[in-house]
């Protein structure tokens, strides 16, 4: 049985990776999952300097999903390289580093630093974050800004470059195309959808930050639709995510056009989720007489 897939020049042993921000820096889940078995580990989003994040409460559960407003808390690039990367490098898996900045300059500097060390296999650019120069509007919602920031990072790195798209746009296929034109090797679809929850009795928002990002099974139909739209628009590989809980969910994302999938909120529900999904995928392939997982990618019958 062949489970391997390619993201540009990066070859994964299987299509299952972890979603940024839901798997810490890998070590947190190593008691539950053998990291050697994963297609890739994607770490929590990093910025040039450490960030404290938003005040609590930071999460609130909603029907079949959760809102989070962590606020991109992270230890910063240098601490990651010194304290977390050596541990991850022991494993036979691909290490993908998610990162972001508050200006194009900061994106470039962060990507340069991450590209200068050994052991990182790919960069995932989170463009769902506010742009300081443009009054904190989001990098990932204005196609011109998206093109600029992705091109700037593309110029300075030879690593596989993945752009993680924001779903909070009118036309996600257009944004995928912009990323492709700017030189991205792959796109991740989708980040969280902005949402909100209110306590009716106190009239207060449930999150200190008032709004947060919705993830989990509640967003799966939207994520699938967006993967499908991007699949029709671009030739670069797509990493599908958003509400994947089971192997069957993951396979649906492959059929919609993703070459790989990322497991996010499901890790919280079941700390062994990533492993269970790999095992379930194998079982599905045996039952359905599929010998190569690539036979599923983008094979929606319609």
């Amino acid at each position: 049985m062949n489970l391997s897939v390619n993201l540009g020049k990066l070859k994964l042993k299987n299509p299952v990776m972890t979603a940024s921000g839901t798997f810490g820096y890998g070590a947190e889940y190593s008691e539950f999952v053998n990291l050697n078995n994963l297609g890739a580990v994607v770490v929590k989003g990093l910025s040039l300097n450490p960030m404290a994040g938003n005040p609590p409460p930071r999460i609130y559960e909603t029907p079949c999903g959760m809102l989070n407003s962590i606020g991109l808390q992270n230890i910063g690039v240098e601490a990651f390289i010194k304290e977390k990367l050596p541990y991850l490098k022991q494993f036979d898996t691909k290490i993908i580093v998610n990162f972001f900045g508050d200006s194009i300059k900061e994106y470039v500097k962060t990507a340069e630093r991450l590209s200068s060390v050994n052991g990182i296999h790919a960069l995932e650019m989170n463009i769902s974050c506010p742009n300081k120069q443009a009054g904190w509007s989001i990098f990932g919602t204005d196609p011109k800004v998206t093109f600029k920031v992705v091109s700037a990072v593309r110029k300075i790195t030879d690593l596989t470059l993945i752009v993680k798209l924001s779903p909070n746009v009118t036309d996600i296929a257009l944004m995928a195309k912009v990323a492709e034109d700017a030189g991205a090797d792959a796109v991740s679809v989708i980040n969280t959808l902005t949402g909100m929850a209110i306590n009716a009795k106190t009239r207060q928002p449930r999150l200190a930050n008032i709004i947060g990002g919705l993830s989990g099974p509640a967003i799966k139909p939207i994520a699938l639709r967006m993967v499908w739209e991007c699949h029709k628009a671009v030739r670069i590989p797509i990493i599908g995510m958003g509400g994947i809980i089971s192997a069957e969910d993951a396979i649906e994302f492959l059929i919609a056009g993703s070459s790989a999938v990322a497991i996010g909120t499901a890790n919280f529900v079941n700390p062994k989720a990533a492993q269970d999904i790999i095992d379930g995928m194998k079982l599905f392939m045996i039952e359905e007489h599929i010998s190569n997982v690539k036979e599923l990618i983008g094979r929606l019958k319609c």
Binding site: T22, G24, E28, A52, P55, P56, R58, N68, I70, F268
Partner: peptide, 22 residues
């Protein structure tokens, strides 16, 4: 007490403010 998601230190949901940061 704080709202929690992962319970294992990975998601940074459950922070409280201390004299040494979150």
């Amino acid at each position: 007490e704080e709202n929690m998601a992962c319970g294992v230190g990975a998601c940074l949901s459950c922070v409280v403010n201390t004299k040494n940061g979150f």
